[in-house]
Design a protein around this nucleic acid. Structure first.
Lengths: 111, 111
DNA sequence: CTTCAGGTACGATGCAAGTCATACCTGAAG
DNA sequence: CTTCAGGTATGACTTGCATCGTACCTGAAG
């Protein structure tokens, strides 16, 4: 059964504000970092990210990422696939995905 | 009179989460875009950005940008200077400033 | 059919953040 | 000195958002 691809903005319509808002959250950034690290861009299940939050909150976060245009969500009914929109992101905001890999090597940020 | 440079994180301590949170706000992103566009990196007055918000709120936004490590604030007492930390940003998150120039060419962002 | 796991919808809650009003500080100019 | 413009501190208000509880939907396996 081919799942339906849930709607998101077209590549040209990606909004930098929405992207930064999406990436401002630690959990969403974690998802994006894991996706960006896999150069094969294979489809992943949404429970493969080991997020320490409830199902409902995960649904919320994936929706935010999709509406920002960062991922595709493929709906299989009782299952969901996640795929990084690498080409669109690189076309509109080249270098953005590379930045996600630069996340705090030194760690302890002063608050 | 040499003003005192208000404290911010060192280049190595820049946190991507704090940076994205700072850039998630439209007014702060506007300031950063204007700063990034000026390749001479000259010091600017903080009322040179034409922000449609009150003084107190501007103070708040500049503080957030400074604490994220994106700008330096130079305190002259009854005046304040703003300078982009271009070198530090480029060292820690190369390409980030370039992204700010890619902001919505079509203008009207869909909400 | 029933059962069950994965996912969504709706509502409520708690906290962080953007905004402004009032009052005060700082330095320069009369 | 006084006056004035630029900036800050504090507090209050409001909005947005991350989180979860409850209930419901979907498809696969018995």
């Amino acid at each position: 059964m081919a799942g339906r691809n849930l709607v998101g903005p077209k590549a040209d319509a990606l909004d930098l504000g929405a992207v930064f808002r999406a990436l401002a959250d630690e959990h969403r950034r974690s998802v994006m970092t894991q996706l960006a690290a896999d150069r094969s861009d294979s489809e992943r299940g949404c429970n493969s990210f080991d997020l320490p939050i409830s199902k409902q909150t995960q649904t919320h976060h994936f929706r935010v990422l999709r509406e920002a245009g960062l991922i595709d969500e493929i709906d299989y009914g009782n299952r969901k696939g996640i795929r990084l929109r690498r080409a669109d992101i690189e076309k509109r905001f080249p270098g953005l995905l590379t930045l996600l890999g630069e996340d705090s090597p030194g760690g302890t940020a002063p608050r």
